[in-house]
């Protein structure tokens, strides 16, 4: 059965990695990756900019983490 992305992530969250098989029907074949291969579709694109932003938010807000490590290594004021 083909599940939608929401169902896939909910199942994975509830039942752990075993439920990842629910994600198996999702996705594309290798020859369908032309768009996903574009630089602007890379989730890690602009990592340095993101790190600079995170440093500011880490210094000015009480939250950190989520997209990466929560951080430390800064006595930011």
């Amino acid at each position: 059965m083909r599940r939608g992305p929401a169902a896939c992530f909910v199942l994975t969250g509830l039942f752990g990695l075993g439920a990842l098989s629910g994600c198996a029907p999702m996705g594309v074949e290798v020859w369908e990756r032309d768009v996903l291969a574009k630089p602007e579709m890379q989730l890690d694109a602009g990592a340095i900019d993101r790190a600079l932003d995170d440093h500011i938010y880490f210094s000015k807000e009480a939250s950190s983490g989520g997209s990466g490590f929560g951080g430390g290594g800064c006595g930011c004021n």
Binding site: A37, P39, M41, Q42, D44, A45, G68
Partner: peptide, 15 residues
């Protein structure tokens, strides 16, 4: 790329 991003505390990617 995914792990590099993870090490640097940034987002995993696909390329």
């Amino acid at each position: 790329a995914t792990v590099t991003a993870a090490v640097l505390g940034s987002a995993p990617g696909t390329r």
